[in-house]
């Protein structure tokens, strides 16, 4: 019993079905469109939503970049990349500008995206209200009613308890002044990159079976209060130990020999590109 797989793993009917849900998502920015999420050769929770989007969109001319927590060579990024290239034979790249489709877990690249590029984000929990309301039936209605006091109250309670909003990654955003949306667990640092983005941003949650989207040039605002403005992670006066970069999202590392703390660009391809251009200059 030997079997070959179709181009990009799925049968064409499945791809078309996923694309139909994607089109609906683009038409209603920030709205979570249910779709018949397939079981994939990688585990649920490991990026199957993003992977299904990528495989449904990819054509023979595409160039793919896949990153996991900012790294092109993180185990899971490598794993997904291997699957995509194995089932399609298309080109892969680490270079952000070269890629036509960028699938990412938990980061938006530091190099600004361009028109025509598609950023696919992997989403674990697509429902921004899930922590205040466990029932899907109810949260769906809350969205329909634009009833977001739960999200506001969550932030308010954080301020009351901790003195500021303590959301970490996945700080909720308001999309096109209509839907409150989970931006996937990108750091707050990346939230701003979603606003009026040149590139199309697609978000896929495989296990939760939802696709949603931010079309290019859509208004995306992080939820915040007038007196408690939205704050990103601060890396003031921190510099990357490798490339000297500033004002980017940093990994905090410990030098094994000296035991000292140091910083390094989280976006590894940004870091390498910067080094390369400095070397050639």
């Amino acid at each position: 019993m030997t079997t070959r797989y179709n181009f990009a793993f799925f049968d064409e009917g499945s791809k078309r079905e996923i694309r139909r849900a994607t089109l609906k998502a683009i038409a209603i920015p920030g709205y979570q469109v249910p779709f018949a999420s397939r079981e994939m050769p990688i585990a649920r929770g490991w990026g199957t939503g993003g992977l299904q989007l990528t495989l449904s969109l990819v054509g023979k001319e595409d160039v793919i970049k896949i990153i996991d927590q900012g790294s092109d060579e993180s185990v899971n990024a490598v794993n997904i990349k291997k699957l995509v290239t194995k089932t399609t034979g298309i080109q892969e790249t680490h270079n952000t500008t070269e890629a036509t489709i960028i699938q990412s877990r938990h980061r938006i690249p530091e190099i600004p995206l361009k028109e025509g590029q598609i950023l696919v984000l992997q989403v674990p929990i697509p429902e921004p209200l899930r922590y205040v309301e466990p029932s899907e039936y109810i949260t769906k209605r809350l969205h329909a009613d634009k009833e977001y006091s739960g999200a506001w109250l969550m932030l308010f309670e954080q301020i009351m308890k901790y003195g500021n909003m303590s959301t970490g990654a996945d700080h909720p955003v308001s999309v096109n002044e209509r839907y409150v949306m989970a931006p996937s667990p990108i750091p707050r640092f990346d939230n701003g990159k979603m606003n009026s983005s040149n590139a199309l941003i697609l978000l896929g949650a495989g296990r939760e079976k939802k696709i949603y989207a931010i079309p290019p040039y859509t208004k995306v605002v992080s939820l915040a209060f007038e007196d408690y403005p939205f704050e990103v992670e601060s890396f003031e006066d921190k510099r990357c130990r490798i490339c000297g970069g500033k004002a980017v999202f940093m990994d905090e590392l410990i030098d094994e020999k000296t035991g000292e703390k140091y910083y390094q660009c989280n976006d590894s391809s940004y870091c390498l590109e910067k080094l390369k251009s400095e070397l050639s200059a």
Partner: peptide, 21 residues
């Protein structure tokens, strides 16, 4: 099993973000 096992994936960015908070 997928979602439980995804906890083994690196969460460096999300954890860094939480650390900041």
């Amino acid at each position: 099993t997928g979602f439980i096992s995804h906890l083994k994936l690196p969460h460096y960015v999300t954890f860094q973000s939480k650390l900041d908070s």
